[in-house]
Nucleic acid binder design. Structure first.
Lengths: 340, 340
DNA sequence: GACTGGCACTCGTTACAGTCGAGTGCCAGC
DNA sequence: GCTGGCACTCGACTGTAACGAGTGCCAGTC
């Protein structure tokens, strides 16, 4: 059965009212609040059909209707009008982000801003190493057999690692090493570095080969293997907004999931995410988060994607609003990174 | 009135039972579970006195007794025996921390370990900049008018900032700058640097004075003003353990407080904290956290304190256990930092 | 054929009364 | 100073009844 125009209107009205009031919505209240031009009885018939098709359901027999995950999905895909941000909001975003001092600060401000604007939990992935390139490598002697390796990426991100050398290396030799690795690697995408690092070991003079090999293995770890992508979170307290029923009674599983970086990365992940994505309830792959919805998108300078950000909240959330906000914030952050 | 030995025993028993069962404890249950050698009636008399003195209270007239903040305080100060960690626990701590790769990893592991062992919210402050010293300063040219300043502290911590120069500076001049700041500042405590930075500006050749002044102001920010101390948190999900009543019904204020770094720093703060400290309920200065208790201590290599760590949970917590764990973890982390 | 008003029905919510029992305070007696 | 006994309190639980929001269905109307 294909739903006619009015049934879709009814579904839209149910979603909007339920999101606003947080209470199951009945036929009478619906006609009162939206001018659907028909009587409650007619709406009831439409509701019966919508329920049969799995878009809404009744918590109990004598209660109003509540959208199902499927209902929200239809709403998001076809029924919601884009809700443009107010100029005031745009300006607030711009002004707030413009004050950022460095990368850490950008990420921090972004995540707080998102949490505040959407009143949900906000998640921002730091610009990914894999998709950025090397700006500079620094070697700092700590002792004769120990170096600190500092890698600066073009996104402003800095990584450091200790290197334990197999034999003492004088300072001049360290300078040589520094020059060599920088010549070879600066400007390259991190994901392209492994063969270059290998080449470094092959090309070096035999007496320095051992040292270079050690350095190379740490380099590889830092540049490639250790994609320990970082994540910033804010607005957890927003989970306590609204009734506990939103999350079938317990915040436990959600707070647990939010503490696991791996899970969060999976949440934002699927790196193709240049386009905005909404996952509703059961569509989520993470069991602990099946009672939540996630709105996420990639961000980065221009068309390049260097990371993802998004918000997480109850399935009963303001999708049009959150989608607009996530999209806008991602765009501003992208621009900001372009300027650095 | 001074409490005799038995009354103290009764209080101890009440605290222990309440912490274990999470339910108000009555006189009968008390004599059954601890061999106090007296009858319930006697215990009731003792309880009446304890209540009068403000150590315990009844949630409702016909319920058992529950310790007050004051009761916990007395328990912590005078009644609890130290609960030594089991060798297995000690080994677990040692093994878990020993695998750490770098500073970030140490802090991460520590905070997770603490949360897991105590089943509370764990808080670890990164080794403070103020109390560490400069190991190396690096200047990386980004463009002719822009440098990236990277500061490496002896605790392994790295800070970076962008420097916008008033005029283009060629690479050789950058090398000069690098040499000068390193000569002057390496090895110095961060808190001692301000006059040295000023001296740098005064001593430099007049034609470089402008550049140096710009650099100096960023240096000061990075080294001193920007004591944006970082904090790691874990185990928030543990707040949902036990009944909601532990926190007078809502996690809201607590989650909110935990999102504010400033508040957390205040929580751990009072930097004299070389000795372990327990704050119970109302003793907390932060309003949102008046229904929680905090066990915290400083940590660092040897007798030096470079940061604080601790746990936060309901006033109804296992004080002896948590105190022992916090102390032990702090010691191991301190040793670990000493080795780097 | 689509919409509507009316009506019987369902069932969760609320209010109230009654019972139960854990726990208390007090007191007389050892 | 401790104890057993006893009356009392009050929250938790149970059962009953009234209420009302919301429904599904049906006969009637445009």
């Amino acid at each position: 059965m294909t739903l006619d125009e009015r049934k879709l209107d009814v579904l839209r009205a149910i979603v909007e009212d339920y999101v606003a009031t947080q209470e199951p919505v009945g036929s009478k209240a619906l006609v009162e609040r939206h001018n659907l031009g028909v009587s409650p009885a007619t709406v009831r018939n439409d509701m019966a059909v919508l329920e049969e098709e799995g878009y809404i359901r009744q918590p109990h027999t004598s209660a109003g209707r509540v959208p199902t995950d499927r209902g929200y999905r239809l709403f998001v895909d076809r029924l919601s009008r884009i809700k443009p941000l107010s100029p005031a909001e745009r300006r607030a975003i711009e002004r707030f982000l413009a004050g950022a001092l460095d990368l850490d600060d950008v990420v921090h401000r972004t995540v707080r801003l998102l949490a505040q604007l959407t009143r949900q939990v906000a998640v921002v992935q730091y610009p990914s190493l894999a998709r950025s390139s090397v700006r500079h490598l620094e070697l700092v002697p700590i002792s004769t057999t120990r170096l600190m390796l500092v890698m600066i990426a073009d996104t402003g991100r800095v990584e450091q690692r200790l290197v334990d050398l197999p034999a003492p290396v004088p300072d001049e030799a360290v300078a040589d090493l520094r020059r060599m690795v920088n010549e070879k690697l600066v400007g390259k995408r991190l994901s392209d570095t492994p063969p270059l690092v290998q080449a470094l070991v092959d090309e070096v003079a035999p007496d320095a080969r051992n040292t270079m090999a050690t350095l190379a293995s740490v380099l590889l770890e830092t540049l490639v293997e250790r994609h320990e992508e970082r994540i910033a979170l804010a607005g957890r307290a927003n989970l306590t907004r609204g009734s506990l029923l939103d999350f079938q009674g317990s915040l436990r599983p959600i707070l647990e999931a939010l503490e696991e970086e791996v899970i969060l990365l999976k949440l934002l992940g699927e790196v193709d995410a240049s386009t905005l994505r909404v996952r509703i309830g059961d569509e989520n792959e993470i069991d602990n988060l099946r009672s939540t919805s996630v709105v996420s998108t990639g961000y980065g300078p221009g068309a390049t994607i260097v990371g993802s950000l998004g918000v997480l909240g109850p399935t009963r959330m303001d999708y049009p609003g959150n989608i607009a906000t996530v999209r806008a914030v991602a765009r501003y952050v992208g621009e900001l990174l372009g300027n650095n």
